[in-house]
Structures are given as C-alpha cells and as structure tokens.
Design a protein around this nucleic acid. Structure first.
Lengths: 153, 153
DNA sequence: CTCCATGCAAACACTTTGCATCAAG
DNA sequence: CTTGATGCAAAGTGTTTGCATGGAG
C-alpha cells in the first residue's frame, strides 16, 4: 500500500532531512510491510546486507522518529523485544506466530475487529483508540503434533 | 473462580513446599484475579503491605514457578514490563487500558474470541493455542477529549 | 553555514544467574 | 537431614541518554 517514495516525499514535505540511513530504513520497513514486523536486530542485519553499517542507537532513534511521524507502529509478539511495522491506512492486520518454528504471518481481520471494537464501546463505554491482537499456535507446516518446540526464523 | 486454598492444595499435592512467601503470592494473585494483572512492582508492594519483605529475585522466580505449574500467565500491556494473572479455566478475559489514566479493566469476550479463533483455524489452517488481545483507549471516566495524557494508577 | 542526524560510550530498567544460606517436610 | 526456597550481588539484554562530530539542505 504505502510506497517508499510516498513516505520519503511526505517526510521531505514536512521539512525533514532525507539521509541515506533514513531512506534505507523506510525502504526496509516497506519491504516487510505484509511479511512480518521487523525487530531492531532485523533492521541492523538488513542495513548491513546493504553495506550500510549503522549504529543501533541510530536505528532506535530513527524508529522513534518514524513513530512520531505516525508512519510506523510498535508490535509486541511477546518475544522480549519490540518489532515495528509501517502504518497503512485502511489496512488492519494481525499476526499468527507459530510456537514451534517462530514463523510470523500477517492476516487481515478488519471487519471482525471493527465489530468487536464497536461492541466494546457499547458494552463498557470505552472508546477504543487501538488494540493489539496476536495469535500463537501451530502454523500450517508445523501441524498439530505437540512433539518439539524447535526454532528457525 | 480459583481460590487460594484450591491452588495451595494442588501445589501441596504435587509435592511442592508451601512457604509463607508462596502462600501470600498466590493469595495476592487470586485477589487481583478480575481486577488487573499484577506487575512485579505491584507484587513487591502488596507483600510489603503484609509486612513480608521479599527480594525481587524471589518474586520473579516464584512467578516463573507458578507459570511452570500452569497456574499463572504472563500479560503484556505494552508498558515495558510484564504482568501476571491467575489462569482460571473457562474464563477468557481481556483488558481495556486507558491511555489517559492508565486504568486497567478486565472484560469478558469469550464467545467473540472463540468464534475468531475458529475462523483463523479454517481460513489459514493455523491451530490457535493462545492469543493476546488488549484494547487501548479512553475509559468511561476519562471521556473522549484528547486534552492531556496524565497519569495515576 | 546551520541544524538535524549520527556514532560512541555510558547509563538505564527490567530480568536472570551463581552461589551461599535457610527452612519446609 | 535433605532438598527446594530465598537473599544478595553481579551479570544480561534490550533500550535510552549525553555529548561531540558530521553531513543535508
């Protein structure tokens, strides 16, 4: 949905400087848009692969900056660290996390959640601004056996 | 639902020692069951109030132990630290977190979520084992104004 | 040339580990 | 007594801050 050019353009319009690091980070985030949210470690790796050696502090600060610009959101998959993904208006997806192979899949649950939020509003007089919804279980390829809990990104 | 006695009894049955600390922590967790999940800081406070000065390491270890016993689960409300709550079978609640006053309210969404999980199973061939669902927004008393984002537990 | 962006080291906050001591059963 | 529970200090891990330097516009 969101393209790198659109985002960069908008940042420029808002008067922010477009550096090599900023451009690449936006690019990486966009490339992962519907794949899986990226962790700081993912980001550092991806930058390294592009021959951009960036300090982790810079990564943290840039992500913080993009959150402030309302272009990125934090995602928590109970791993003990944060992940980040591009915010695309109209898109409202969630994640399926496999407890065996750790695979992450994005799924669209827009209508279902809209209904739930409305229900919450009525039932508890609580005006929902956002929510986090993630599912943990066995993905297609890991099946349903309860044997091991091995890993692999 | 779950009573302190039941849990303590079961732990005894499983051959675990019942210490003063263990008993009080179970008690505190049960008392917070439908109120709000407790953080380590909450737990230390509550223990202090009962004139039990416990080391934080012990609190962490005991919570870990109770998780291992399948009596407690971790809850993440995006605060930067973990919370814990008693697992009660048949009860399946979620949380409304006010972004203004930080109040936490437990709400029952059992049927709605059961339907969603089934949907996920069918649509993506993913066998859901658990999920996390939390809503963030304005609670009843904080209304809908966007003015300040002050605090108070 | 002027600030915003960056790197580096140190500080932080929450959590975990190692080891000696204590106490439940 | 025996072994699980506890306290204390230190280490770990992800994240943030302070400050000097660098580069976009």
């Amino acid at each position: 949905m969101a393209t790198e050019e659109q985002l960069i353009q908008e940042l420029r319009r808002r008067g922010h400087r477009i550096t090599k690091v900023r451009q690449e980070m936006v690019n990486i985030l966009v490339e992962h848009e519907r794949v899986h949210p990226v962790s700081v470690a993912d980001m550092l790796h991806a930058l390294e692969e592009r021959s951009l050696s960036v300090n982790k502090t810079t990564v943290y600060r840039e992500l913080e900056f993009l959150i402030g610009e309302k272009m990125v959101r934090e995602v928590d998959l109970l791993e003990g660290w944060k992940r980040y993904e591009v915010i695309t208006k109209g898109d409202h997806h969630h994640h399926l996390v496999c407890t065996r192979c750790s695979a992450i899949r994005c799924v669209d649950m827009h209508e279902d959640l809209a209904a739930l939020e409305m229900e919450i509003g009525k039932r508890f007089n609580f005006r929902v601004q956002s929510h986090q919804l993630e599912f943990f279980g066995r993905c297609d390829s890991c099946g349903s056996s309860d044997k091991s809990e091995s890993n692999s990104e």
